[in-house]
């Protein structure tokens, strides 16, 4: 029978590619809303040749689990950022999580469009990870504490929970605090019982985790401008048709723009809600924090892994 290969091809065409997108944020957080928007865009634009399933709240596993899964060839996409890529062997990428590297979001977006960033993306691709979109704002990372912090000196000796990576640990250490890595799920009780004195994250995450019920003081220090990225396994990405690849990256960018709009809106909303629920926002002199954070970029433990003059290169690239 001559026509059988053709029908086989046809049936393969009609069977949509299923892409699973996993992230740690909970339903209703800006990232989740924007991921829903992304799903909508992909499914519309691909005329049903691509189907997207969303898995919020780390249902499919942690970021690291998902990265291992995509390296094994699974058709998953996840949210990850510079600090993760540094731990996956692209050391220079970690600098984007350095304290006070960016002054404005514009600088972030200039950097993600720069040649330096393209180089880093290429290195990541060699490691089997394909960056799909880098224009997603995750938010300014602020600090919520159980005791008031009025000056950077007050941070001295305070145990602040940070994610488990060297960049963020050292980034907080230079401010004088005692960075304490801890599983996110244990943070609420640890704050309540005083095992730690604070944590840092974007406002929407702080509000959604209900940490303000047990920690009442907030400083808007914005120590990291956290943009985030979506990645997929290179093998999976290459298995898509060029058209599908284009749809994926294009819509990723568009959903990113949508994300950034609602991020600002929802961040303001979260701040209002935090205040309304009894959180005291303390005015700080941010310059003081910035000044102290500068030491980070000359710490030998940090710079030993970096390329020569990385700080200057990146600073130039974001202008």
């Amino acid at each position: 029978k001559e026509d059988s290969p053709e029908t086989a091809e046809k049936s393969e065409e009609t069977k949509p590619v299923v892409i699973q997108i996993g992230y740690g944020n909970n339903p209703g957080e800006p990232i989740d809303l924007a991921a829903n928007e992304w799903k909508k865009l992909i499914e519309e634009r691909s005329n049903g040749s691509m189907k997207v399933e969303l898995f919020p709240s780390a249902q499919l596993g942690s970021k690291n689990d998902l990265i291992d899964q995509m390296l094994a060839g699974d058709s998953v996409i996840t949210l990850a950022d510079g600090a993760f890529y540094a731990d996956r062997g692209v050391k220079d990428f970690g600098i984007v999580f350095g304290p006070y590297l960016f002054d404005t979001w514009e600088e972030c977006w200039t950097l993600t469009e720069s040649d330096w960033y393209k180089e880093q993306s290429a290195k990541l691709e060699e490691k089997g990870l394909k960056l799909l979109a880098s224009n997603w704002m995750y938010g300014d990372r602020h600090t919520l504490t159980t005791k008031p912090v009025k000056t950077v000196e007050d941070l001295k000796g305070m145990k602040i929970r940070v994610p488990n990576n060297t960049i963020q640990i050292k980034g907080f250490e230079v401010l004088g605090a005692t960075p304490t890595p801890m599983a996110f799920g244990e943070v609420y009780t640890a704050l309540q019982q005083g095992t730690i004195d604070g944590l840092e994250n974007p406002l929407t995450v702080l509000y959604n985790g209900k940490f303000h019920e047990v920690a009442k003081y907030l400083i808007l220090d914005a120590h990291v401008k956290n943009f985030t990225t979506w990645i997929a396994g290179t093998d999976f990405f290459n298995s898509l048709t060029p058209e599908q690849q284009q749809i994926l990256t294009e819509t990723g960018k568009e959903a990113g723009i949508y994300n950034n709009e609602i991020q600002e809106e929802l961040n303001d909303e979260a701040l209002e809600k935090l205040k309304a629920e009894g959180v005291q926002v303390i005015d700080i002199n941010k310059e003081e924090f910035k000044e102290k954070a500068k030491a980070f970029y000359s710490l030998p433990e940090i710079t030993k892994d970096w390329s020569e003059g990385l700080y200057e290169t990146v600073k130039d690239a974001m202008k």
Partner: peptide, 8 residues
């Protein structure tokens, strides 16, 4: 934290 209910 998932259902947005006060943990307290």
């Amino acid at each position: 934290s998932i259902a947005n209910v006060s943990i307290g």
